[in-house]
Design a protein around this nucleic acid. Sequence first.
RNA 1: GCCACCGUAGCUCAGUGGUAGAGCUCUCGAUUCGUAAUCGAGUGGUCGUCGGUUCAAAUCCGACCGGUGGCUCCA
Length: 650
Amino acid sequence: MTTAEIRVTLPDGSERRLPAGSTAGDLARAIGPGLAKAALAARVNGEVRDLARPLPDGASVAILTDKDPAALDVLRHSSAHVLATAVRQLFPHAKIGFGPAIEDGFYYDFEVPRPFTPEDLQAIEGKMAEVVAADHPFVREEVDRAAAKRRFVDDPLKLERIDDLASDEVISVYTDGPFVDLCRGPHLPGTGRVKHFKLLHAAGAYWRGDERRQMLQRIYGTAWFTKDDLEGYLRRLEEAKKRDHRLIGKALDLYSIQEDVGPGMIFWHPRGAMLNFQLRRFIEDIILARGYELVYTPHVTREQLFRRSGHLPLYAENQFPAMGAGEGEAEDVRYRVKPMNCPMHILVYASQQRSYRDLPIRLAEIANVYRNERSGTLHGMLRVRGLTMDDAHIFLREDQIEQEIFELLDIVELVMGKTFGLDYRLDLATRPAKKLGDDAMWDVAERGLEQALKRRGASYRLDQGGGAFYGPKIDIKFNDAIGREWQGATIQLDFQLPERFQLEYTGADNAPHRPVMIHRAIFGTIERFVGFLIEHFAGAFPLWLSPEQVRVLPIADAQLEAARGVAAALQAAGLRARVDERSETLNYRVRDGEVMKVPYLAVVGQREADAGTVAVRVRGAGKKQVVLPLAELVERLTEEVRTRSLVSSV
RNA sequence: GCCACCGUAGCUCAGUGGUAGAGCUCUCGAUUCGUAAUCGAGUGGUCGUCGGUUCAAAUCCGACCGGUGGCUCCA
């Protein structure tokens, strides 16, 4: 039998015949010179591969150009190799780790005697340009294990990786000019295709992400197909910096962190405190209307409570150390600040006998808890040690799980989607390998979560094995305006704590039963949520949230009394308004109001004072003002607040 | 916690071995102004802390505290 020809199917469904042994690159050339020039890689039977690899007979093949998102990953991975090529030339003794493509860029890990300096990065970037100019082809070879080990005899990290490869795995190495790497690929045809890149920063990173292993030096970079894309990306990074809640938080006097008190502890200044207060009111109104009951519980407890809950051995690392026994107390009575509220709420549940008719019982508390987070993880308001959870624990029967989750998802949508207009994603995290409780229980729980998600028509990502050891959960993640992902709300089922605390309710059969418990937070924590909102709105909060809603500006002192009257009328309607009485020019005061992101500046000159109107300047709208009778302004703004509108009503 | 970098007035920053600076903020005075910074004057810092080197340290070295970017961990 001769196999002089192979047939492949193109994305448009057409078939092409090629000589046996033809590569994807050959196919591109056969189709046309334009495509041959633009071709970067190929998708063969769904898998992205090098152009230089021979095509199997009967394959469906798509030639990838820079228009294809998958090609970006190939570019970035190849950029990582270019980086390593350059580093090896400048630092011949650098041991190489991993160098993958990541979102928006790539990195490569090196083991070097001393960390890279900013000057090193510059030199490396220069050397990379030479590697690109040389346009070394990326050459793939498949080798056996022994050959691979010989190739990387001087690279212990690669040797370790080889040892971890499954016995049936194909081992491939890629060469570009002087550099050889153990790598699955795929790559661009040559280093010359890496044109628009920039090294961003260097940082330490544990080998294989394991903090017990040595720390490697990681270099991060970004790479794009066009100059515009690269510049656009760098511009976005700059924009992101301007939205940083730590900068805006300072500029708008929202909060501070004081070294005297300690890292990760938020001081809510009056303006920030108003955001906090409004969010509390908002969420409390919502949950009180949905059958929740508020509780308040102590911040400090005998240590034994967390021993019983099982937290202490596991969670001690994240708890502040115990406080000693008080005067006259037994030596062994030690106290802990609480890092979470669940055991407290459980004690409220357990304080009396419960009937199946009472369930679900929903105990909510917006509570401050303290967690001794590792110092390196702290980050503005987004990661703190003193945190305010909008916490609740729901005690319910197994048959109520689906409906309760359904209602929780409804609250999430009401808050995140309807009120703030946020895009968020749902992750369903299922049973991990190390788990407590029998499979039947997990089946019920996971099915309940899944059914609820389906019933809501919500799209969600399955995080197989990502659940907590005590139960599956739904995590709500959202992207901020600049694309970073955060975890906010979380809905966790728990079979463990009811067990440990021997919780019971009396069923219709007059026998004791064990309830299931749901831990849930909608904002997650007020700190993180406010930090996120600051960045999302870049400090320009919707009216209902704005710490200062209206600033009244008399044009001159002659209108001071009229301005005070306007402010008083607004205040009487429940709006947060004040008069800027400073003896500064109008320009100065307008600028200050804009800089402070006050939604409305109500200018009162003689014309307005005489007519009983105000000239309203809308935040961000520039000179374009709207003159309204005072009563109408009050009406519009109170309505804007009532509806929690995201757009101006003026 | 680990790696690197950073820490000067309330804020943003200049000052690299020889007597601590600017702008803004704040206070006072003048100005009373029609939509993004009016003019003048003044207050304000043992240069993160402690120790070391030096005739001399904001500047060089060390430790600690705090911050930034990553890693690990996580709401």
